[in-house]
Design a protein around this nucleic acid. Sequence first.
DNA 1: TTCAACAAAAGTGTTGACACTTTTTCGCCG
DNA 2: CGGCGAAAAAGTGTCAACACTTTTGTTGAA
Lengths: 224, 224
Amino acid sequence: MAEKQQRTLVDQVFKKIFDLLVRGEIPLGGVVNEAALAERFQVSRGPVREAVKQLQGRALVVKEPYLKARVVDLSVEDMIEIFQLREAVEGMSVRLATQTMSDSDLDRLLADFSDALENKDGPVLDVHVRIAEASGNSRIRSLLCDELYYLLRLYRARSGDVPGRRQNAFSEHWQILRAMKARDADLAESLMRAHIARATSALHDLLESKDEDGADQSEKRNAG
Amino acid sequence: MAEKQQRTLVDQVFKKIFDLLVRGEIPLGGVVNEAALAERFQVSRGPVREAVKQLQGRALVVKEPYLKARVVDLSVEDMIEIFQLREAVEGMSVRLATQTMSDSDLDRLLADFSDALENKDGPVLDVHVRIAEASGNSRIRSLLCDELYYLLRLYRARSGDVPGRRQNAFSEHWQILRAMKARDADLAESLMRAHIARATSALHDLLESKDEDGADQSEKRNAG
DNA sequence: TTCAACAAAAGTGTTGACACTTTTTCGCCG
DNA sequence: CGGCGAAAAAGTGTCAACACTTTTGTTGAA
């Protein structure tokens, strides 16, 4: 993804639809109507179809033949699955980065992190992205930054951050970076895994507290 | 994937093209020609286009706008990246399976494995698939069994198995299953990771031995 | 002979029309 | 009044034609 040249309609439409999802104009679980989107973007249905197919490939849209496509409705259970996967992959990501990053790159990362501490509106996930990019493994980077990151954004757009995580994140990130600086790959990996596992626990708690109130206010609108 | 109902042409075409790749009729790096495939399968180009787009989504086909689509040409470096990812994810997979599998399911897995030892033409990867399915995490299962598995098959179809691995695989699998039976998730995970890391090392060796012979016999044919 | 510009061919991107499936609507019968 | 079934509507799947881009091949001049 990233900075693809987008010379083709499909790519433009893909991005436009994705923005619609992130901005919540098509809500989670909402219907994705090809004809309506084609009309809206002033293109034919072909490119829209292919763009939706791509979104489907990224698991952002769910569909069966001849049935309306729907935006994925991420449950807390889904998020737990995603966080379990992230725990494993981000652990490997930081392990590889610790082993292969140059000293200068590492110093720059530490410096940038310190800078980010000043202007507090933190790009929390940026540390994870930087590490994934530094891992040198393009598939791990793509999985974390392209696939899972989008799902996280979609979930956060609706459900907000996992409660009470923002505060701890900084110190946990700092510990991870220190382990990297010490070239202790084992420690870096286990700190990262613990860091993500804590968020997973918070999700589990959320799940239990939600089991109690039986209220089920599901709200689905149309895309037209 | 698995047993999707395939009521639509796109799904049928997808499967047919994929078979072409696995059977090597379109070689790695070979050109994927929409019109030729449409002619071959007696359908129009639309479904072929979408099927190719899906293959692109699975990273089996690489393409840029207006340029011919090509089957991905997996280098040893690519395989190393994939195995690093697998190490992390299969580790988590076996950890989760160890924690959540019922005793009876675990016993059945052990029994099936013993049976497979008899008829020697081993489905080596089947143990991994069974564990992934038992992990209870659908995203991990899908990543391992749908995405990465296809890439492995494609690589093996051309390059054969990683040398000298077949023999050790059985005993390593057996150790993993024993750890699962003992409900030792930590041990199961580290055994699995070591199991896959060994294959990664073999790939690294392959890489070094290949650096010496500068012969570059690349062979690309057309799909028509 | 070599290189550049141009023309032809091949291949991908896009479109609008038509076919098929699913859903909704509406009238009929019980 | 309520449920059943047919007809209409809405939406997705497929197709063939056309537009655009890239590649290939040819010609002509330096």
